[in-house]
Design a protein around this nucleic acid. Sequence first.
DNA 1: ACCGTGACTGGCA
DNA 2: ATGCCAGCCACGG
Length: 118
Amino acid sequence: MNRQTKSSSAAPPNFLERVYELVRKVPRGRVTTYGAIAEACGMRISARMVGWAMNQSHRVLPPVPAHRVVNRKGLLTGKHHFATPTLMQELLEQEGVKVIHDQVVNFEQVFWDPHQHQ
DNA sequence: ACCGTGACTGGCA
DNA sequence: ATGCCAGCCACGG
């Protein structure tokens, strides 16, 4: 009886939930980055944890719009983890986000900062 | 228990 | 501007 049984110490036990809830807040037609989410969750030093969280997001309810999360360059680095390699791009374009060569066009324009929105 | 990998990022050459 | 390296945390083999 003491301290946490599982999970680690650096990240809070609800870190995963926090990430998902935050990603769900991303408006349709906008995108955010792993680093931005990590920072909003107090894990800016570990954006990788967000990527790991996204990998698990497919089994979480309600569904998480993981396709709205790209890397800092605006590249769809996670597209290979979707049902099909083109699904992520199609979902984004379906929302009005233009993507060329796995790169979000006008990335800084469609970028949605969770910290700014809280 | 140890090592390598990963949907990342910032800094430096 | 582009490319490489190191730091980060968690998980699987």
